[in-house]
Amino acid sequence: MNEANLAQDFAFTSEFWSGWIIVLTLGNIFACWWLIRWTAKRRAGEAAEGDTTGHTWDETLAEYNNPMPRWWLWMFYITMIFGLGYLVLYPGLGSFRGVLNWTHQNAYAKEMEAADAKFGPLFAQYATKPVEQLVLDPRALRIGERLFVNYCASCHGSDAGGAPGFPNLRDTDWLYGGNPETITTTILDGRSGVMPAWKAVLGDQGIKEVTAYVVSLSGRDADTSLVTAGKQHFATYCAACHGADGKGNPALGAPNLTDKTWLYGASAGVIAKTIANGRNGHMPAHRNFLGEDKVHLLATYVYSLSNGKR
Rank of each mutant, 00 (worst) to 15 (best):
E3T: 14
A4N: 10
N5K: 10
S14Q: 12
S18R: 06
W20T: 11
L24M: 10
G27H: 06
I36L: 13
T39I: 11
A40L: 08
K41I: 00
A44I: 09
A44F: 05
E49N: 14
G50E: 02
G50D: 03
D51Q: 12
T56V: 15
W57C: 08
Y64K: 15
N65M: 02
M68P: 15
Y77W: 12
T79Y: 12
G85Q: 03
V88N: 04
A109H: 05
M112H: 12
A114T: 15
L122R: 05
T128Q: 11
V131I: 15
P138R: 05
R146E: 13
L147F: 05
A153C: 10
C155P: 15
H156G: 11
G157K: 07
T172D: 13
G177R: 04
G178W: 00
I187D: 05
I187C: 05
D189S: 10
D189W: 02
R191I: 02
R191S: 07
S192W: 00
V194A: 07
V194Q: 12
M195C: 04
G203M: 02
G206W: 00
L217Q: 10
R220I: 01
R220W: 01
T228V: 09
K231W: 00
Q232D: 13
T236K: 13
T236I: 07
H242Q: 05
P250T: 11
P250N: 07
T258K: 07
D259F: 01
K260V: 11
W262I: 05
A266F: 00
V270A: 07
K273N: 15
N280M: 03
L290S: 07
G291C: 03
V295C: 08
V295T: 11
H296P: 04
V302M: 04
L305P: 14
N307M: 01
K309I: 09
